[in-house]
């Protein structure tokens, strides 16, 4: 293979390596189906941000939950859009987060906060837990035992 044909491949390889972590930015319409999945698993959706200290504290518990059979965790970041590349993606990489992470970039908070739960005032952290027959919203921080106990009550 001639060098001039190898170069694009090499560049692509470098590019791919540098871009291993991708976090999708969604508006609420795009996020909404992920909050209403018809799944056999218990769905745990945590609303967080890299700057939110109590969120970061409980994040490892959600990562542990995600390893459980029958539980799927979705981490919805509310980081500022301008901080997605500088803070969110480096954080996801550094912490090696295994749960699915999406970035909610939708200005119409007054609409989607109530759509997600009428009981949510908008404070972070907050967590939605749902199964096929039950749905609960928690505007609070969890200890590990509280979180596992709550999620297990959905089985």
């Amino acid at each position: 293979m001639k060098p001039n044909r190898l170069l694009p491949i090499l560049l692509f390889a470098i590019y791919s390596f540098a871009q291993t972590t991708e976090v999708a930015s969604f508006d609420y319409q795009q996020l909404q189906p992920l909050l209403h999945q018809n799944s056999e698993s218990v769905q745990v959706v945590n609303f967080w941000a890299t700057w939110c200290a109590p969120c970061i504290k409980e994040l490892p518990y959600f990562e542990e939950l995600n390893k459980l059979e029958g539980v799927e965790v979705l981490l919805v970041s509310l980081d500022f859009p301008k901080h997605k590349q500088k803070r969110l993606i480096p954080f996801v990489e550094k912490q090696k987060l295994q749960s699915k992470v999406v970035h909610l970039d939708d200005e119409n908070e007054n609409y989607w906060i109530n759509e997600i739960s009428t009981t949510w005032s908008g404070a972070l952290p907050a967590t939605l837990i749902y199964s096929q027959n039950r749905r609960g919203f928690y505007e609070q921080s969890f200890t590990k035992s509280e979180l596992f106990k709550e999620v297990k009550s959905y089985f």
Binding site: H36, N38, T118, T119, R135, G136
Partner: peptide, 19 residues
């Protein structure tokens, strides 16, 4: 179905915040 489902559970979440 999803819409009906979401309506069904609108009233059930724990109301710790706005009480």
């Amino acid at each position: 179905i999803l819409f009906a489902y979401s309506l069904l559970f609108l009233s059930t979440p724990t109301d710790l915040v706005n009480g």
